[in-house]
């Protein structure tokens, strides 16, 4: 009963901005990728946005977590057959499946995160300029480093993560010349996304080589990096969501990638009826990426660091600084 009232309330809220018929027919679905919705990282960021949507509207969201590549297409089709009116895919690995399913069901709305190369009239695509956010935290790393050596630890060695690394290196060089950047990837299998032990080992080895700030873009593995840096009294930099609270005082800042906003916005727009399709590229200017400054790290960021980072941020937004995207030519400028 309580649930029913909640749902009706949700419908009433929806009526406020749209038509009754639309709200009644509205059935959202999300297909998480292999990491699973509690991966402490990318998928969980999406889940955060979904949860906010559910809490606010009371609408039920159908969910599925795939365990092998063939399930991606299967899950999307199943969602549509079960009456989903909008299906959200999570991650570039679902691009091919989404392309096929979106073509087969032109009356259903689709959205996918981390993809910008498909072309379907009923598909919205979100891509993020991770390199811009990484650039800013790279500046923070260079300015906070006393040893003039900073580190980067990636998860699986794929172009997306190299784009994180490349933006970071550019930020480091921009803030301060002559700073060394040590780079490691955790591995070459999906296990690399969830190996905190290996993350801690890699962080320790970078610390032994002189690094005193380490940026990680490695999903669950990154938790190990943050832990190892905290134990050694060095700085770590969080990724995707705000991870400053994980080890207050030793997480210098976090590179924010607002996949939660993308997920929330997708369902919210579909519910209110103004779901426009096409490609949405979210960078600094759009608030899709950024750096985290909160009560956990305000003592670590000096006024000078803050003003420099904010100046660079404004320059990137204004186009005065062009951050090179590794994915544009599979290359990172030296």
């Amino acid at each position: 009963m309580k649930k029913l009232i909640k749902m009706m309330l949700g419908a009433v809220v929806a009526v406020g901005v749209s038509t009754t018929a639309y709200a009644a027919d509205f059935k959202p679905a999300v297909v998480y990728d292999m990491g699973g919705k509690f991966d402490k990282s990318f998928n969980e960021g999406v889940y955060g946005g979904i949860k906010r949507f559910i809490d606010e509207t009371g609408v039920e969201v159908m969910e599925f977590e795939v365990t092998n590549p063939a399930q991606r297409e299967q899950a999307m089709r199943r969602m549509v057959n079960r009456g989903a009116t909008v299906v959200l895919g999570v991650g570039f690995a679902q691009a091919d499946a989404m392309d096929k399913v979106a073509a087969d069901f032109p009356d259903t709305k689709f959205a996918i995160i981390d993809v910008n190369w498909l072309d379907r009239p009923n598909l919205r695509q979100y891509a993020f300029k991770e390199h811009e956010g990484s650039f800013l935290v790279g500046m923070a790393a260079a300015l906070a480093s006393e040893t003039d050596t900073v580190g980067f630890i990636g998860g699986m060695d794929i172009p997306l993560i190299r784009a994180f690394a490349c933006g970071y290196v550019q930020g480091v060089k921009h803030a301060k010349g002559g700073v060394d950047v040590l780079q490691n990837m955790t591995g070459t299998t999906p296990a690399a996304w969830n190996d905190p032990g290996k993350g801690a080992e890699l962080a320790q080895s970078q610390i032994d080589r002189g690094a005193d700030v380490i940026y990680q873009a490695a999903g669950g593995t990154g938790i190990g990096v943050i832990r190892a840096a905290a134990d050694a009294g060095k700085f770590a930099i969080g990724v995707d969501s705000n991870q400053n609270h994980l080890a207050p005082g030793t997480v210098l800042t976090s590179m924010l990638k607002r996949v939660d906003v993308a997920a929330y916005e997708t369902f919210k727009d579909a519910m209110s009826g103004d779901f426009d399709t096409g490609i949405r590229i979210l960078g600094l200017a759009e608030g899709g990426v950024g750096w985290a400054l909160d009560e956990h790290n305000e003592s670590l960021i000096t006024a000078e660091m803050k003003s420099q980072i904010e100046a660079a941020s404004a320059d990137i937004v204004a186009g005065n600084i062009q951050v090179h995207d590794y994915r544009s030519d599979n290359n990172c400028p030296r």
Partner: peptide, 17 residues
């Protein structure tokens, strides 16, 4: 496989390996 699919064999114009 990561090296080949992320480099020499990577399909251009997209970022999935």
């Amino acid at each position: 496989m990561v090296w080949l699919l992320g480099g020499p064999l990577l399909q251009q114009g997209q970022q999935s390996p």
